[in-house]
Design a protein around this nucleic acid. Structure first.
Length: 802
RNA sequence: GCCGGUGUGAUGGAAUGGUAGACGUGAAGCACUCAAAAUGCUUUGCCCAUUGGGCGUGCCGGUUCGAGUCCGGCCACCGGCACCA
């Protein structure tokens, strides 16, 4: 009989649909294990061949865990709010909810086609009001705790999406989603105080198992720096506060620079003798896009404020103040003390404006260039700091500043608060009401969810207002506090809002009274293993950790971190080695592969394709290698075999024990490619010496997480007990993985000169004797004294000759 | 510039400091076949050669009996951050 993958896969998918063998039970005697993949955005294009990589990987983990006796939760859902759906709806004049429904149905069907063991009864959809009710509830709680606030801030505005973007969504000066230009706009926006959690998000990363690449990326993004704030008195009679990481160089501060937007300019306007010039510079800076402003190669510009100057608190010098766009308004206090002797940017600026450059750490030549690499230097020209090392000087000056009330130690972060408003339709309404009398008032919890109303037009207005702004009867609502006239917030949440907490909902998806019951959260959380894309490290992954920590603080969840272990996969590239895209015409559709080779072959190939963490180009040719492997398995296992079901043949016992060890270990290390290679080797062995019934059973049990349909079919054909999915993962005996005899490499002076075969575990002397007994080795060693021998048990002997 | 990662046959990629190139693709050959496909088996890093030997993991050094692996210094590519004081 031929391997009819189409019929087999259809048959088993039908059985799984009906008997739900992968449904997770809340509680029980087995240990729990929560496996999570990032739920997809159900786009109109359907599943991309990139999706099956993480899905298959985690399906393998989930299926293996079940075989190991765990109670496994492996859920799936849809992150369905978002722009593409909205744009599609606008273009085709369909309601986004209808588009979403269709896309979700298609994704679901495709996942089922690939045989994933998701617990479909727990599927969530972020656009379901019963779901977003809780997304809104979390927002209300954040508002209650002062973590959600409305502020007028300069925001990133995507000119094409007509929408505000979070900093995380701007990549290289353009919109992460559409690649269009991003400009600055001042807008009143809901903000989330993620900065309050910066320290914890950074520190607690230590308790998450995560690759170094991801940790480093998170560290960069949070951007913690330690320094001090210092107050400089000014001739305007006030003080100017700066942040510096180098308080030790305070004696070298010869001028100050403030950002063009700094409030002090307005405050001092009356005193400035060159106000016109200053205004001109401010205007020019405002015109520039962020991207232009931050271009490094650009020459420094600035204007000196005439009429106001500052005083260096330690030297007593009167020092000039400049405005320049190399100082950012949004970091620290928007002002710096410039130490041209020890900062490259300040040095460049000082040279251009002919400002004095003071050396305060010995060792460089500050006239030639800034001496910045001076952590081990010694302080000079620095009064009471002279002779101290840089580190000691930092401590001493910070103490001194604190004593005198001139400043204090301070930690700053690059991380900014999260802009949480979007001027779009297809998102969760922000459950807030604005009342002239009471200000911003939260919608009472009992009135959640605030439903998205049906509107005629989904397009953002040209003024940048949400389509909801045109819905007067929806907008006008009594103030929940005073009952007076009030208006609803018309902005919606960004599409990250729903994905912040979805893993909590899977635990208890039908709960009408809370996010999830405490009992179920206690049982299932934290997520044991979470796999997702590297591109979400500073977006979804960071956001959801923040959200989770907040929920922990208000007692809504039992753990401070949502995920125990995080892994990431590489991209599947086109055959040309380029990113797959419609415009390049190098897109592989999983449906085509399933039709031609079957789901099991696709699953196997996508795992065999290469190192899971690295990008890998698709190869149409190489797919057939995996199909060939399954054909070979089929041909072996469809025949009746001799022997007992639960015994291995003598010929293959060792190979099987080895394969069990290798495949299991490789799955844990996400080295699926070598796990499959080990299975292929085992099958190659079976072709050399026919396997027994028990040998076949072991092979199918190991293969079952990778290629579940064919494994199940052959399992049934062989009449083995139960199903391959439910059968226990085979155990191995270390002693049985070892050969009786070992081939020992014989080196002379470190160079391989031959091999000898000795019994396993032979003592060193026996190995040396065997090596010297070898004809070739004996010849090479003849007449020369052996100065030294190195023996690596069961592996190698190295003879050092004089 | 800072942080992180990667560099191995024609090719995707394997190798806890211990026989480099597992497994797969591709290629070549043999068997089966009228023939082809499919399948099965064999070979396949480079160079010289008769046994055999030399050279090989981006480059240059070092440590070691022994280095793809560890250390120092470079080069290239990829990713993140980037005038963050």
């Amino acid at each position: 009989m031929r391997y009819d993958f189409t019929a087999i896969e259809k048959k088993w998918q039908g059985i799984w649909e009906e008997t739900k063998p992968f449904a997770a039970k809340d509680g029980g005697s087995k240990p729990k294990y929560y496996v999570l993949i990032e739920f997809p955005y159900p786009s109109g294009d359907g599943l991309h061949v990139g999706h099956p990589r993480p899905y298959t990987a985690m399906d393998i983990v989930a299926r293996r865990r079940r075989k190991q006796g765990y109670n496994v939760l492996f859920p799936m859902g849809f992150d369905a709010f978002g722009l593409p759906t909205e744009n599609y709806a606008i273009k085709n004049k369909i309601h986004p909810a209808a588009v979403t429904k269709k896309n979700v149905a298609r994704f679901t069907e495709q996942c089922k086609m690939l045989g994933y063991s998701f617990d479909w009864d727990r599927a969530v959809d972020t656009t379901d009001p019963e779901y977003y009710k809780w997304t809104q509830w979390i927002f209300l709680k954040m508002f209650e705790k002062g973590l959600a606030y409305k502020a007028s801030v300069p925001v990133n505005w995507c000119t094409s999406c007509k929408c505000v973007l979070a900093n995380e969504e701007v990549v290289g000066g353009v919109c992460e989603r559409c690649g269009s230009e991003v400009t600055r706009r001042e807008k009143s926006q809901w903000m989330l105080k993620i900065t309050d959690y910066a320290e914890r998000l950074l520190n607690d990363l230590a308790s998450v198992e995560f690759m170094e690449r991801g940790r480093a990326q998170t560290r960069n993004w949070i951007g913690r720096s330690v320094g001090a704030e210092v107050d400089f008195a000014t001739t305007a009679g006030d003080t100017l506060r700066v942040f510096t990481t180098r308080p030790d160089t305070l004696f070298g501060a010869t001028y100050m620079v403030i950002a063009p937007e700094h409030a002090a300019v307005e405050k001092w306007a009356g005193k400035l003798k060159n106000l016109d010039e200053v205004r001109e510079y401010q205007k020019a800076a405002a015109r520039k896009s962020d991207f232009e402003r931050t271009e490094m190669s650009k020459e420094k510009t600035g204007v000196r404020l005439l009429g106001v100057s500052a005083m260096n608190p330690v030297t007593g010098w009167e020092i000039p103040i400049f405005i320049s766009d190399y100082v950012l308004a949004t970091y620290g206090s928007g002002a710096i003390m410039a130490v041209p002797g020890h900062d490259a940017r300040d040095w460049e600026f000082a040279k251009k404006f002919a400002l004095p450059i003071a050396e305060v750490v010995a060792g460089g030549d500050v006239e030639k260039e800034a001496f910045t690499d001076c952590d081990n230097g010694v302080m000079v020209n620095s009064g009471f700091l002279n002779g101290l090392g840089v580190a000691d000087a930092k401590t001493k000056i910070t103490e001194w500043l604190t004593d005198k009330g001139l400043g204090e130690g301070k930690v700053n972060f690059k991380l900014r608060d999260w802009v949480f408003s979007r001027q779009r339709y297809w998102g969760e309404p922000i459950p807030m009401v604005h009342c002239e009398r009471c200000g911003w008032v939260p919608v009472p919890e009992g009135e959640l969810p605030v439903l998205l109303p049906d509107v005629e037009n989904y397009e953002t207005t040209d003024e940048g207002e949400s389509p909801l702004a045109a819905m007067t009867e929806w907008i006008n609502t009594p103030c929940p506090r005073c009952g007076g006239e009030a208006k609803r917030e018309t902005d919606t949440m960004p599409n990250w809002a729903g994905s912040n907490w979805y893993y909590l909902r899977y635990v208890d998806p039908g709960n009408e009274n809370e996010i999830a019951s405490r009992e179920k959260l206690d049982y299932w959380t934290p997520v044991d293993w979470y796999n997702g894309g590297m591109e979400h490290t500073t977006l979804h992954f960071l956001y959801s950790r923040f959200c989770h920590k907040f929920l922990y603080d208000i007692g809504a969840v039992p753990t401070p971190e949502p995920y125990k272990k995080r892994t990431s996969h590489g991209m599947i590239l086109g055959e040309d080695g380029q990113k797959m895209s419609k415009s390049r015409g190098n897109v592989i559709n999983p449906n085509d592969i399933v039709r031609e080779y079957g789901a099991d072959t696709l699953r196997l190939y996508i795992m065999f394709i290469g190192d899971f963490e690295k990008d890998a180009p698709w190869s149409s040719k190489a797919v057939s290698g995996c199909k060939r492997f399954l054909d070979r398995v089929w041909a072996l296992a469809e025949k009746p075999r001799l022997g007992k079901e639960n015994e291995y043949s003598e010929a293959h016992e060792k190979a099987i024990h080895r394969a069990v060890k290798k495949v299991g270990g490789d799955i844990e290390a996400m080295k699926f490619n070598t796990a499959i290679a080990a299975l292929m080797s085992l099958v190659n062995n079976f072709y050399e010496t026919p396997p027994s019934r028990g040998d076949i059973k072991a092979l199918l049990s190991l293969l079952s997480p990778f290629a579940p349909h064919i494994s199940e079919e052959l399992w049934e054909l062989q009449g083995f007990f139960g199903t391959s999915a439910a059968a226990a993962w085979p155990s191995y005996d270390e002693a049985k993985t070892l050969d009786d005899e070992r081939e020992i490499a014989v080196q002379i002076g470190g160079k391989l000169r031959g091999t000898v075969t000795v019994p396993s575990g032979s003592p060193d002397e026996a190995i040396i004797a065997a090596a010297l007994a070898d004809e070739k080795i004996a010849r090479l060693a003849e007449g020369r004294e052996i100065a030294r021998t190195i023996v690596v048990k069961d592996k190698l002997v190295n003879l050092i000759l004089k």
